[in-house]
Amino acid sequence: NAMSAYGLYQASHSPAHALSNDGILSRSLPHYWYQFAHGDIEWFVTDSRTRRNLSAADRRILDVEQEQSLLEWLVNSTARVKFIVTSVMFYPDRTLNDGDAWQAFPQQRLRLLECIRRHGIKNVIFVSGDVHGSMTSRLCHSQDSDFEVHTIVASPFCNSELLPYAVASNFIFKPPMARTENGDYHYELTGPVISQDNFAHLHVAAQSIHVTFHDRDGYPLQVVDIPLR
């Protein structure tokens, strides 16, 4: 029932559906992930919910086809800015690992990061929600000063008392997120964790991305500039 409602009210309005010649949405939908572009900005919206594999032999949050499409897009896209949308957090990692976010799929997360680093891909931004708090953070590499990836977490638009707001102490900041033979990945917050109802507005300018978090009445709470390279 939940997936039927998603198909009717959300997926039906998204670029996941192709338009037929007469303008009617095609009824077949082979997958929920999709891409779209606006000017020199491109987006890859992942499906990190319905195509998971939890087997120990090949644990993944994205299926094989989707991961390959994402990697090819990262390498081949000429977009100045590349946004990757994921329903659950790419990072920072939480102190309480409930097995839901990318934290629980470290091998696949590392494959994506190593692809970005090895190919020198610039201006990759992960956009996510899920944790009932908003923040921005930067991921760097101990041996590759040219590598930098950012994340924007924007939620919740409306919270309830049953789901407590996130605070900075809910996340792990001291040890590296991942260790490899070529160096370590480590992250840091680039702004405070916002623990109230809010939404984010992104403005991509020539030199930076302006991220403004607003309260439920539209008043700005915090502004963060993410520099572009």
Results as ranks from 00 to 15, higher is better:
residue 77 S to G: 12
residue 78 T to W: 08
residue 78 T to N: 14
residue 79 A to W: 05
residue 79 A to N: 11
residue 79 A to P: 02
residue 81 V to C: 13
residue 81 V to E: 11
residue 82 K to S: 07
residue 82 K to R: 12
residue 83 F to S: 12
residue 84 I to E: 14
residue 84 I to S: 09
residue 84 I to P: 08
residue 86 T to P: 12
residue 86 T to N: 10
residue 87 S to A: 01
residue 88 V to E: 05
residue 88 V to Y: 13
residue 88 V to S: 08
residue 89 M to R: 15
residue 90 F to M: 08
residue 90 F to D: 06
residue 91 Y to A: 11
residue 91 Y to T: 04
residue 91 Y to P: 03
residue 91 Y to K: 05
residue 91 Y to I: 03
residue 92 P to N: 02
residue 92 P to L: 09
residue 94 R to M: 09
residue 94 R to E: 07
residue 95 T to D: 09
residue 95 T to M: 03
residue 96 L to E: 15
residue 97 N to G: 00
residue 98 D to A: 13
residue 98 D to F: 02
residue 99 G to H: 05
residue 100 D to K: 05
residue 100 D to V: 04
residue 100 D to M: 07
residue 102 W to K: 01
residue 102 W to V: 01
residue 102 W to I: 11
residue 103 Q to K: 07
residue 104 A to H: 11
residue 105 F to A: 00
residue 105 F to N: 00
residue 106 P to A: 09
residue 106 P to I: 06
residue 107 Q to H: 09
residue 108 Q to K: 08
residue 108 Q to D: 03
residue 108 Q to F: 03
residue 109 R to F: 05
residue 110 L to S: 08
residue 110 L to A: 06
residue 111 R to L: 06
residue 112 L to E: 00
residue 112 L to C: 09
residue 113 L to K: 14
residue 113 L to A: 13
residue 116 I to L: 14
residue 117 R to D: 02
residue 117 R to G: 01
residue 118 R to H: 13
residue 118 R to Q: 13
residue 118 R to A: 13
residue 118 R to Y: 10
residue 119 H to K: 01
residue 119 H to W: 07
residue 120 G to P: 09
residue 121 I to C: 09
residue 122 K to V: 05
residue 123 N to M: 14
residue 123 N to F: 15
residue 124 V to N: 11
residue 125 I to Y: 05
residue 125 I to P: 03
residue 126 F to M: 14
residue 126 F to H: 15
residue 127 V to W: 14
residue 127 V to P: 06
residue 127 V to M: 09
residue 129 G to W: 03
residue 129 G to R: 10
residue 130 D to W: 00
residue 130 D to K: 10
residue 131 V to P: 01
residue 131 V to N: 00
residue 131 V to Q: 02
residue 131 V to Y: 10
residue 132 H to L: 07
residue 132 H to G: 11
residue 133 G to T: 02
residue 133 G to S: 07
residue 134 S to G: 15
residue 134 S to A: 15
residue 134 S to L: 14
residue 134 S to Y: 14
residue 135 M to D: 11
residue 136 T to W: 07
residue 137 S to R: 09
residue 137 S to P: 09
residue 138 R to I: 01
residue 138 R to L: 03
residue 139 L to I: 11
residue 139 L to A: 00
residue 140 C to H: 11
residue 140 C to Y: 12
residue 141 H to V: 03
residue 142 S to G: 01
residue 142 S to Q: 00
residue 142 S to R: 04
residue 144 D to A: 07
residue 144 D to S: 12
residue 144 D to E: 13
residue 144 D to H: 15
residue 145 S to N: 10
residue 145 S to T: 12
residue 145 S to L: 10
residue 146 D to P: 07
residue 146 D to H: 13
residue 146 D to F: 04
residue 147 F to K: 04
residue 147 F to I: 10
residue 148 E to W: 10
residue 148 E to T: 15
residue 150 H to Q: 15
residue 150 H to M: 13
residue 150 H to T: 15
residue 151 T to A: 11
residue 152 I to G: 13
